[in-house]
Design a protein around this nucleic acid. Structure first.
Lengths: 255, 255
DNA sequence: GACAATCGAAACATCAGATGTTTAAAATCA
DNA sequence: TGATTTTAAACATCTGATGTTTCGATTGTC
């Protein structure tokens, strides 16, 4: 499951997660997977205690965590409800990670890609202006690892680290908080295209170009190269997912 | 305090916050305000119980909430530490709200504005393509409220709602999750420029242009108008804050 | 005196049970 | 029927006990 890969990339490992975190993740996965109807009640505290075999305090802490992520809403006396998706903190690392546990939805993936196309060319441009030599070194190393990768997994990890390095090199705290979006989109894309390593190597020249432009402090070139790279990814996804561009430019729904 | 204004805009009101939420907010404010050294220990559970006059379960839930926002790190046996700022979930609504409780830091505000300049022109462009008639109506109403506003507060709220309407009209779930960044930047900007209502009215023509372009389904015009509006804001901030552009490479690009 | 093994206090983790408050639905009555 | 009262369900909070981990202090040997 690539949810674990996501957590690896965020190096959330190291610390042993307590029971509350475990229960939180288990519930979170089910909510994101759509096992509960929007606005529907989930089991009460006692049932959850029995189901997970833990005490009430643990369940309460787990629920508090999910409330913090916007997934649940607790009403005293009434019960605990699943909030509508529009209220979820979609940028929360766990919420994004849990999305990796389900089949990628074409429209959501497109939205993630739209945001990547908005964010990363700018990030590359800023990186060319402000990156320190250490930050450029990080980008170079990631690029090198992409070249050397032999398995799909190694390649994806190196790819993710490349884009993260660029993002960090832009030296904008708020921007860095968006790295989860990039990881999520990247992992989902790989899952969808399921391309073999050779196919992936196709994107290497553009990554090289981004690196070169940043090294040369050429902001516009970095922006362009990154934009071109993402457009290529975008196109590949369009080819594989029929609904990828479906709900674009037209909407008049709502029930 | 405009932290409350932030919460109003996110309509987090309605439900009475329990003790855990109160303690969480109180601690969160202090952390964001920098009352603790990075990596430093905070009081242990018992001391916090005494300090806030609540039971251990409440304190534990509050701490779990802060861990979920990346502000704290709990190590069994050792204690609870404040994580370094780079690990905070800066896009979390509460974290952004707590930033409103302190004097805006020029560099952080610039970073927020950079992100706005990256996000909102795109959002306006997409809104021109995908907005429903109801969504356009929302934008129109917000714009109307801006025209009619008499107090600074009314104006800021209408301004925030205008930008939120545009963001929502882009019909991208991930994008919507960034509305907190816009609110935060907007409220900080007002606090800094402290401009009187008449001065604010200066931005009305550009808002009108954005609205007109979206109504006309002219994506490029919407993007341009929004870009121009933000560039204007950016410039005004540069004039007031000497350090606003301090840690910065040089030029802007984007095309 | 240096170093390693041991011990114990501090701090978080979990559990169990009791009591208060709020909500919403069921029961009751005019 | 419609308004009021009652009651059961569910969350909120408190209390106290026990387990586990960490880290520093103590101790004992060489």
């Amino acid at each position: 499951m690539s949810e674990l890969l996501y957590y690896d990339l965020k190096d959330t490992a190291g610390v042993a997660p307590g029971l509350a975190t475990q229960v939180c993740r288990e519930l979170g996965r089910r909510i994101v997977a759509g096992h509960f109807s929007e606005g529907g009640l989930i089991d009460d505290e006692n049932k959850l205690c029995t189901r997970f075999g833990v005490s009430k305090s643990v369940v309460r802490e787990a629920i508090k965590l999910l409330v913090g992520k916007g997934l649940l809403e607790v009403r005293r006396g009434s019960g605990t409800r699943v909030r509508r998706r529009a209220s979820w903190n979609l940028l929360d690392d766990d919420v994004l990670a849990w999305h990796q546990g389900i089949e990628p939805k074409p429209e959501f993936l497109r939205q993630l890609m739209d945001v990547r196309q908005m964010v990363e060319p700018n990030a590359a441009g800023w990186a060319a202006q402000t990156a320190t030599s250490e930050q450029i070194e990080d980008i170079r190393n990631a690029q090198h690892d992409m070249e050397q990768a032999t398995s799909i997994q190694d390649f994806v990890v190196a790819d993710a680290l490349f884009h993260r390095s660029v993002l960090r090199a832009a030296n904008n705290e708020v921007l860095i908080a968006l790295e989860g979006v990039i990881f999520s989109a990247l992992l989902s894309s790989i899952k969808v295209t399921n391309s073999d390593p050779r196919e992936n190597k196709r994107s290497l020249p553009l990554h090289r170009q981004v690196l070169k432009a940043i090294e040369a402090r050429d902001s516009q070139a970095a922006t362009s190269a990154m934009r071109e790279h993402l457009a290529d990814t975008y196109e590949r996804l369009s080819g594989v997912l029929p609904d990828f561009n479906a709900n674009r430019g037209a909407s008049e729904q709502e029930g």
